[in-house]
Amino acid sequence: MKNHSRKISPLNSGLLVLAIAAVGVGVATAASGNIWQSPSGLDVGTPAAGTHPMTGAEVKVDRFDNVEKAAGEIAGLVDESTEKTYFTIQVTHAELADRCDARVGAGQLRPTRTKFLILDVKASLASSVSEKVGEKTGDLYMPLVAEAFSITTGSGEVRKNLTSETAWGCLDDSALLPAVVNPGQSVRGKVVLDVADVSGKVAYDPEGNGGWSWPYGG
């Protein structure tokens, strides 16, 4: 995806504008079998920062192509031509914890690394995304599992291995973010990561080649 051209600029709402929307929108067609892939015909561009369409303000993109967001700021995908929002995601709160309530049983679980990083996340996917990408609604979704997140440490290292058995076992299902968001849905819930670093940036980067990051800890 780094080779594709992408124009990014923020709107007042803090959403992103992509020249061609739908980065990371999963398409599961019969032909694609078990492979999750971005929809054909929908490229996502170079990480060259764009400008705000109205203010001209620069959009900051880190060296891992993650657009930097302030704590609690909404990120997402907007069709530049129509300014229609297709996907939004927001880390509303990030908390470091030494333990969590186990989903099964009455005990508490501890991280296998240093801390649990518990994110409160909101996400939505517009029902009109299927018209945009020309796929059936049932074939489109955005993954929201812990594996879609990564962190960048203070020293600039990227860590993608943020899951663990104990992180998986944290919290009741009703408190957790669903595994996917489908067209027409708005979802919210917690994502539990198992991190070694108590501060840095946490990124939603489902394809591992550029997404959005929010600061945590520190």
Binding site: G26, I35, P143
Partner: peptide
């Protein structure tokens, strides 16, 4: 939409059992 689905499977000896299979969307993604 789920990570896992509990479904009936049949082993090589023809015996049925439950198994937690990867949910279709997350399996495709992962």
């Amino acid at each position: 939409d789920q990570n896992y689905n509990r479904k009936i499977v049949t082993d090589i000896n023809g015996r049925k059992s439950w198994a937690y299979l990867g949910g279709s969307k997350i399996s495709k993604y992962l």
